Measured scan of single mutants.
Amino acid sequence: MGFKLLSKLLVYLTASIMAIASPLAFSVDSSGEYPTVSEIPVGEVRLYQIADGVWSHIATQSFDGAVYPSNGLIVRDGDELLLIDTAWGAKNTAALLAEIEKQIGLPVTRAVSTHFHDDRVGGVDVLRAAGVATYASPSTRRLAEVEGNEIPTHSLEGLSSSGDAVRFGPVELFYPGAAHSTDNLIVYVPSASVLYGGCAIYELSRTSAGNVADADLAEWPTSIERIQQHYPEAQFVIPGHGLPGGLDLLKHTTNVVKAHTNRSVVE
C-alpha cells in the first residue's frame, strides 16, 4: 500500500471513529477524501466538511520552486461564519470567499490569524475590503508590521502568557507558548472536538522541520505538551499544512522538532 493511500485511509478511519463516538456532533463529509496538494491548482481553494458547521479550507501556493498546501478553518456561528487564517495570499483568499459563498452561503463576518507569517495573514486586506472584521493577538499584529505583512485590524486580548485561553464565538483560542513562531495560536472547536494546530503542528508525513527561522526550538516541545494537557479530548487535529489526523500529530511534531534540534547540535 502506497504512503499517500495509507495517509488518506488514516484520515478516513479517524473521521469514521469520530462519527461513531459522537453521532450528534459529527456529520463528516462523505463526498470524498481530504484534498491534497496535487489536486488543488494554485489560485483555487477546496472546502472539506469535518463536522456539522465545521470545515477546513485548503489552498496551495508556490514557494521556492515548489507547491505547498495550506489549511485553515471555518466555523459556523449562528447565521454567520468565523474564518481562521487566510488562504495564503490575496488571490487565494478572494477564491476562498467565493467558494464559501458557493458552498455554504453564509457571510464571513470575523477572521482570526493564528500567527504573523504570510500563509496566515496574506489576504487580510481582501477580507477587510469584503467587510470582514480581522483579528490577531497584539504580538501577531506587531510582528506582521515588522515583517511588512498585512496586519489584522483588531487585537485579541488575554493571550499574552503561555497557557492563556479565551473564548471567541464558537471557538476557544489558546496560546501554548512559542513553537513554530513566538505568537502562534491554537484554535479548538469544543462542539466538535476539532483542534486546529496551525503551523505549530505537523502532518504525519512530514519528517523535516522546514521553516524554523522564527521558531523557538527549545520551547516548542513544552508548548505541545500544554496543548495535549489542555485538549486531551480532541479527536480531529488539523495541521497548518497537509493531512489531518488525531492527537498523534502532536507527538510526531515533537519528535521531528527534537530530531532537528539534535542534528543542529551535532553539526
Rank of each mutant, 00 (worst) to 15 (best):
Y68P: 03
G105V: 13
L185K: 01
V67H: 15
F174M: 13
D85K: 00
P221M: 11
S137D: 03
T153W: 07
T253Q: 01
F26T: 08
G246V: 04
F116M: 04
I20D: 07
E44W: 09
S31Y: 05
L250S: 01
W88Y: 00
V67M: 09
K4A: 05
H57F: 04
S223D: 02
A66R: 12
T93F: 01
A19P: 05
P244Q: 05
H230N: 15
D79T: 14
E172S: 07
A94Q: 14
S161Q: 15
A213C: 15
L204H: 15
D119C: 01
D85H: 03
D125F: 12
L173Q: 01
T86W: 00
P239R: 00
H180S: 00
A178K: 13
V256N: 05
L249I: 05
D79V: 13
D29L: 09
F116I: 04
K102D: 15
A200I: 12
T153Y: 15
A234I: 09
A94F: 12
L73E: 02
S113D: 04
S38P: 10
R206Q: 11
Q229W: 13
L6D: 08
V171S: 03
L81M: 08
E39H: 13
D79A: 14
A218V: 11
V28A: 07
N255M: 07
M18D: 05
D183W: 00
I104T: 05
A215G: 12
G158R: 10
T253E: 00
V266I: 05
G105I: 06
W220T: 00
V166W: 07
L217H: 07
H180N: 00
A165I: 07
R120F: 02
H57R: 02
D77R: 04
I20W: 09
T140N: 03
T261L: 15
I58D: 03
S193F: 07
V108W: 03
T261M: 06
G163Q: 11
V67W: 11
P221W: 10
W220P: 00
D119K: 00
V121N: 02
V266Y: 15
E233G: 12
E39I: 07
G240K: 03
S208W: 07
M1I: 04
A213W: 10
D183H: 01
E157L: 13
G105D: 13
H241K: 00
A129G: 13
L243Q: 08
N92F: 02
L10R: 08
D52N: 07
P221T: 12
S38F: 14
Y68E: 08
A209R: 11
T254K: 08
A98C: 10
Y175K: 02
L6V: 10
R110N: 14
Q49E: 07
G2Q: 09
Q229L: 10
V171Y: 02
S191C: 03
E219I: 15
N71A: 08
I50K: 03
D29W: 07
V187F: 00
W88H: 00
R76H: 06
V189P: 00
A259C: 11
V212G: 12
S161M: 14
G123I: 02
A95V: 13
S160L: 13
G177V: 01
K251D: 06
V42F: 15
G197C: 06
R141V: 10
S31P: 11
A95D: 09
Y12A: 13
E150R: 04
D64S: 07
I84S: 01
S38I: 09
D214T: 15
E145I: 11
L143G: 05
V112F: 08
E172I: 08
E203R: 02
E267Q: 06
R110W: 10
G43T: 05
E219K: 10
S70G: 05
S139C: 09
T222C: 05
D119M: 01
V45E: 03
E225A: 14
Q103P: 04
A165F: 15
S137A: 12
A130K: 15
N149D: 10
R76Q: 06
G210H: 14
L247V: 10
L173D: 00
P41T: 07
L47K: 01
L47Y: 00
P221Y: 08
N184S: 02
S22D: 10
I186V: 08
Y196T: 01
N255L: 07
A94M: 14
T60R: 11
R76M: 09
W88Q: 00
A215K: 15
P35S: 07
G197P: 12
E233W: 12
V187G: 04
I186Y: 02
H252T: 05
A19M: 15
D183V: 01
N211P: 07
S27Q: 14
H260R: 09
T153I: 09
T86G: 03
T140H: 03
G53E: 12
L10P: 05
Y175H: 05
A130Q: 15
V28K: 09
V37G: 06
L247R: 11
G2P: 09
S113G: 08
L73K: 01
S30E: 08
V212W: 07
I74T: 08
Y196G: 01
F236D: 14
Y12K: 15
S162Q: 15
Q103L: 15
K102H: 06
P170L: 05
L217Y: 15
I238M: 12
V171T: 08
P35E: 08
R120V: 03
E267C: 04
A136W: 03
Q61P: 04
T114E: 00
D29N: 07
L10I: 07
R206M: 06
V257C: 06
N262F: 06
S22H: 14
S181W: 02
S193R: 12
Y231E: 01
